[in-house]
């Protein structure tokens, strides 16, 4: 009896591993930043190199940080959704213009519309590294207490926003962990 049960058992274990392996989302890496203080940055503003913007100016407020670049195909894909989310005005969207050229980025906003309250210019991607960015577009939700609540990698859609972000907004605005 064992002669048959053992191979069948082993086969079942193998199938189990493969099944869960297939079902797992291997594209999205867990961010170690969740639940931790959002990295503070100070960069020049995209629209004015003479002025700086720091996310510490938003202390006490919940905001979304969206990492984008004019070279990024997925960013073009999600742009309509960002415009819609900005129009709803639930929470301000800050842009982090990542590894980009200032002129190309400004052209992009002019052509496609600007969902951001402000875009910070991270031309050499240093702030991106602090935020653990590995592929634009990435979208972070930061709470009023300055902690990162959620990260979404890949283009955002209005559906993802409503299902995954909106339920977190009251918590984000209250500032509780």
């Amino acid at each position: 009896m064992l002669k048959y049960l053992l191979p069948i058992g082993l086969f079942a274990v193998l199938v189990g591993f493969l099944y869960f392996g297939l079902g797992r989302d291997k594209e999205t890496l867990p961010s170690p930043l969740i639940g931790k203080a959002a990295p503070v940055f100070e960069l020049t503003r995209l629209d004015d190199p003479a002025k700086t913007f720091s996310n510490s100016e938003l202390a006490g407020k919940a905001y979304v940080l969206n990492v984008w670049g004019s070279w990024c195909v997925g960013c073009r894909q999600e742009h309509g959704a960002l415009l819609e989310i900005a129009r709803r005005g639930e929470v301000p969207i800050v842009g982090l213009n990542y590894n980009d050229e200032r002129e190309a980025a400004l052209n992009w906003l002019e052509q496609l519309g600007n969902p951001y309250v402000v875009s910070a210019f991270d031309g050499d991607g240093r702030v991106g590294i602090d935020w653990g960015v590995y592929g634009a577009p990435e979208t972070f939700l930061v709470g009023a207490n300055g902690k990162v609540i959620k990260k979404h990698v890949a283009p955002i859609t209005v559906e993802i926003w409503e299902q995954e972000f909106v339920p977190l907004l009251s918590q984000a605005k209250a500032g509780s962990p």
Binding site: L29, P30, P32, L33, D130, G132, Y134
Partner: peptide
């Protein structure tokens, strides 16, 4: 590196 990107 791991503080920013995790063990991966």
């Amino acid at each position: 590196m791991t503080d920013r990107y995790g063990d991966y």
